[in-house]
Design a protein around this nucleic acid. Structure first.
Lengths: 242, 242
DNA sequence: TAGTGGTCTAGACCACAAA
DNA sequence: TTGTGGTCTAGACCACTAG
């Protein structure tokens, strides 16, 4: 029934996921692994991989001896912080149409702290981009991105930077952003920030300090950003780690 | 070499983890899966499970065709939000000694909103606990916990509540807390909060709104808490979801 | 007791990286 | 080309839940 590539696991996962979303399982009970394996003509291992990933995403839960079930509360959360990728995705997941404004692009010497974070020579140039994200034309996130100048071609203009950062890296720098290590910090809107985000001064904000890593686990991006909390709500699932 | 229970995967994982921590792998290169399987006398599948979990924790990374490597930046992060369990653990992971103060314990009728969150009847009683967490005797987290009164025995006194909430549930309510669904909200210290946490009014704070679920996926705990950001830094890893 | 998910095995083949 | 991790299989046995 299924073909290779995308992997059988991926296909099994999305098949099951769509059945869940379409409410095809009465009482939220998902067929046993053996039945699913038989039905989709794959091994039980493949089904188990698919179910494990759905469980991680919060879409289902399993009880040994009892069965596998749809997890309604988990299904409703569409913006899980651990899985969110670009800010465009965050905005879209909340049901808004994302757009961007480039407020500034600078080529400059790295500050010492930035050079350390990015493991580059302090005399090397970096690119600093100040980018505003809008949800249905309301400003919601202000991001400052820093990365080594050598990751970009010599000539560029501001319009290049409307695309998500990870796309820019993939196209120009032959680098793939694979994960972020993020620090969550509470902040208060300064008068300047308040003006940019169209909010009142001293409004509480969330700030993210993040380092983005490539496939070789080298830091390639430093990002500091500020979120308007009234439009975007950040959620995550916290589990026992074992 | 390894015995059953804890599972072979768990044992393989902790064996490999401790070797990583002890810096036994030169140049951060971890032996191939085949070699590890042979050495620990388990199947390659078991080794792969163990490595997958270490990869999820950020301790290692894998490159198809190249090998498996220690992830130094990931190793240094000891307080990953997605994996953190009780607030005691958060505090301990930051290197402090955790302790608690019970500020208030009340038995009262559920507010409508709380009843909805916990899926209980609005006329049912809930227990509300106000608990202060201290790191080396400095107040750092204020938590308000709400749960159905029936989860507790009829008689109790305040001292019962010094233990982590999940322990209380396991012992008295025969309920196991399996995961939290958490919402992160920026806040500002009110005069009252400032006094409790020994900080200045209007200091930015992180607030968590959380619902805790049991093994049957029913909500059993509602928690609202406030973090001092100067002593505790919350981190997480954000990945592409596929 | 029957049926479910949890763990584990041995082995096959594929995709990719590095020499 | 060699060796690595990635995917997948078929089958065994265990631990647990529920009727």
């Amino acid at each position: 029934m299924l073909k290779r590539n995308p992997s059988l696991t991926d296909q099994a996962k999305s098949t099951i996921k769509s059945r869940i979303v379409n409410d095809e399982y009465v009482n939220g009970r998902i067929p046993s692994e053996a039945i699913l394996a038989d039905e989709l003509q794959v091994s039980r291992t493949t089904i188990r991989d698919a179910l494990s990933r759905l469980e991680n995403e919060g879409a289902i839960y399993r009880k040994q001896g009892a069965g596998t079930f749809v997890n309604q509360p988990g299904l409703q959360i569409k913006t899980r912080l651990e899985e969110i990728w670009s800010y465009e995705d965050v905005i879209a997941a909340h049901g808004y149409t994302p757009s961007t404004q480039i407020l500034a692009v600078r080529r400059e010497m790295a500050r010492k702290e930035t050079a350390v974070s990015l493991q580059i020579d302090p005399t090397d140039d970096i690119i600093r981009i100040e980018k505003l994200f809008l949800a249905d034309d309301q400003p919601v996130i202000l991001a400052h991105n820093h990365f080594a100048a050598e990751l970009l071609p010599d000539s560029y203009d501001d319009d290049n930077f409307h695309a998500p950062i990870y796309e820019i890296f993939e196209e120009n720098g032959r680098q793939q952003l694979t994960y972020y290590l993020s620090e969550i910090v509470p902040a208060i809107a300064s008068p300047q920030l308040a003006q940019i985000l169209h909010i009142q001064s001293n409004t509480p904000l969330l700030s993210f300090n993040e380092i983005g890593y490539n496939a070789n686990n080298n830091p390639i991006l430093k990002s500091i950003s500020y979120f308007r909390d009234d439009l975007l709500r950040l959620r995550l699932i916290r589990r026992k780690s074992n």
